[in-house]
């Protein structure tokens, strides 16, 4: 399943440890994502899922271990350098810019690109027609579902090659969660690799090809999503079975 190039996986976290002061949040995490895949990372609150994404994005620096993207060692790349290479995150809680309009939020997504071409904007508006209607409205006035769409749309403006999604279903109504996951599928079918962090394990495993299970800063299980859905421990711990 994992497509690799001569230097290994498309993206790889190799034995990465991260600490907040004395507290070790990640303890030797290894995760691989192949080009074109949707890979999910599931686990309980506080397991280290968001820390993993913030480390990939270069907001947190690993104390130990390496990061590779597209054959390059990007362990020491700055956060803006990571975005420039095409790894873009939709953070937990959406974190849209509340006092900027929808349009300005989208322009911020294209910040690293030299000239924002209108093609990308048109494409984003086609994916999320509601955002086109609301383009002049302040980001902070949108509903939760619209804010999540804006957060995803904003990340697409960067023309990502690897999209990191942190809890896109958080706090949204089931119908909207379904829409969001359908969109994730569509984005992936357009050639964007997706690494998805979710507490909603059922939805995440349903949409992804492979999955990792994380507990207290460690990856404890990895398999195809189909197998994980059948796994008894996973069912007991994360699927309410």
């Amino acid at each position: 399943m994992v497509k690799t190039n001569e230097n290994g996986a498309f993206f790889k976290l190799d034995d990465v440890s991260v600490s907040y002061g004395q507290i070790e949040a990640l303890k030797g995490v290894t995760v691989e994502v192949g080009e074109g895949e949707i890979v999910s990372l599931i686990g309980a609150n506080g397991a280290g899922k968001s820390t993993t994404l913030m480390t990939i994005s270069g907001i947190l620096k690993p104390k130990k271990g390496k990061k590779y993207f597209d054959g390059e060692d990007v362990t020491d790349a700055s956060a803006d350098g990571i975005v420039g290479r095409g790894i873009v995150q939709v953070p937990e809680g959406r974190r849209i810019f509340p006092r900027m309009s929808v349009q300005e939020n989208l322009e911020m997504g294209a910040f690293r690109r030299h000239k924002a071409d209108t093609g990308t904007l048109d494409h984003v508006f086609e994916l999320f027609p509601i955002l086109k209607e609301r383009r002049g409205q302040k980001g902070g006035t949108l509903s939760g579902g619209e804010q999540q769409m804006l957060a995803i749309a904003r990340s697409l403006m960067a023309e990502p090659r690897l999209l990191l999604l942190d809890e896109p279903s958080l706090g949204l109504a089931p119908k909207i969660v379904e829409d969001i996951f359908a969109t994730i599928n569509r984005i992936n079918s357009e050639g964007i690799t997706v690494f998805l962090v979710e507490q909603n394990a059922a939805m995440a495993l349903d949409v992804s090809h492979r999955g990792y299970v994380m507990e207290t800063g460690k990856v404890v299980l990895q398999d195809t999503s189909a197998n994980l859905l059948e796994n008894e421990e996973v069912q007991k711990a994360y699927l309410g079975g």
Partner: peptide, 22 residues
């Protein structure tokens, strides 16, 4: 660009960094 970066940083510094703002 620098003005937009300033506004974004003022509103949410982490989000600004995730957009590639230095």
């Amino acid at each position: 660009k620098v003005g937009k970066a300033m506004r974004a940083t003022a509103q949410d510094q982490v989000a600004a960094r995730l957009m590639g703002v230095n």
